[in-house]
Amino acid sequence: MSMDFGQIRRSEHLPARIAAQIAGDIQEGRLQPGDKLPTEHFLSKALGVSRSVVREAIAQLRNEGLVETRQGVGAFVTERQARLIRIDDGKLLESEGFRDLFQLRIPLEIEAAGLAALHHTSDDLAKIDASLALMTGSERWTSEGINADLAFHRAVADATGNDYFAMFIGFIAERISLAINAARARAVLEEIVEVTIEEHVAVRDAIAKRDPQASRTAMRNHLLGAASRIELTLEVF
């Protein structure tokens, strides 16, 4: 195996940067399934960081399914079929990469809204309402409003009763905050927040009425509105 250990740039979040570097070696075949990663001591010396930073990076890779750790032995590259999804967050800073992720969001969340209308429980609706209440309260002007927006979409995904929708949409939601911040930066904050709230209310009301078609339409309108606010051109049919 071959790994290029250069000094990690201090301006970046170190564990994430190290995890991305090792993940690249795995995905490009420089590290093969079954290969053992170098020790924490070796990595910390080679990369010029502390062992705790290396440990956090390995934990991130383990959470993403790229490596498995064996007590007292070390970390090993997993077989491909055992791996979870991984997105290079750096690519989301590029317009094409971010657009592609947002394009994926469209069919997933539209379908999730329809399924949520059919399958939601009273607890699911309470979670949707709780996130909407945060979005419409005084926190709507702050980062807490953005967190509430993301929580709303996760709650809708949970309400489908399908763990895979919750997994994929939750994964995307963690990265889609870039879109919300961009939208707020490009418009008058009061206008953008109020429009966004109206769109979310329409989704919530359609789900509460157990109307799958209206829920899908409301979610479609919201996502296309969100895309237009950050000047994204998507392919929709």
Rank of each mutant, 00 (worst) to 15 (best):
F5G: 03
F5W: 14
Q7Y: 14
Q7N: 14
Q7F: 15
I8F: 06
E12T: 13
P15F: 13
I18G: 09
A20S: 11
A20Y: 02
A20F: 06
A23C: 08
I26F: 07
Q27M: 13
E28T: 15
G29T: 05
G29R: 04
L31Y: 00
Q32Y: 02
P33W: 05
G34M: 02
K36V: 00
L37G: 07
L43T: 00
K45I: 01
V49W: 04
V49P: 10
R51M: 13
V54Q: 05
V54C: 02
V54T: 04
V54Y: 05
I58W: 00
L61Y: 02
R62G: 10
N63S: 08
G65D: 03
G65L: 09
E68G: 08
R70I: 14
Q71H: 11
G72V: 06
G72T: 06
F76D: 11
V77F: 00
T78P: 03
R80C: 02
A82V: 03
R83P: 00
I87Y: 04
D88N: 15
G90S: 06
K91M: 15
L92D: 08
L92V: 12
S95L: 13
E96P: 05
G97H: 08
R99G: 00
D100T: 14
D100G: 09
Q103N: 05
L104S: 09
R105S: 01
I106Y: 15
L108I: 09
I110M: 09
G114Q: 13
A117F: 06
A117R: 04
A117C: 08
H119R: 12
H119T: 05
S122H: 04
D123R: 07
L125R: 13
K127P: 00
K127E: 14
I128M: 09
I128V: 13
I128A: 02
A130C: 07
S131Y: 07
L134V: 10
L134D: 12
M135F: 08
M135G: 09
T136G: 03
G137F: 06
G137Y: 03
R140W: 01
T142H: 15
T142D: 15
G145R: 10
N147C: 01
A148T: 11
F152C: 02
H153N: 07
A157Q: 05
A159D: 06
T160N: 05
T160I: 10
N162S: 08
D163E: 10
D163F: 02
Y164T: 01
M167V: 06
I169Q: 02
I172K: 01
E174N: 11
S177M: 09
S177D: 15
A179N: 04
A182I: 07
R184Y: 10
R186D: 14
E190F: 04
I197T: 07
I197R: 05
E199S: 00
H200R: 11
V203I: 15
D205M: 11
D205V: 09
A206N: 01
I207V: 15
A208I: 04
A208S: 10
R210A: 12
R210D: 04
P212M: 04
Q213D: 14
Q213Y: 10
S215C: 07
S215H: 04
T217C: 07
T217H: 08
A218V: 12
A218E: 13
N221P: 01
L223Q: 01
L223Y: 05
L224R: 04
G225N: 14
A227F: 03
S228N: 07
I230F: 03
L232K: 09
L232F: 12
L234N: 07
E235V: 15
V236N: 14
F237S: 12
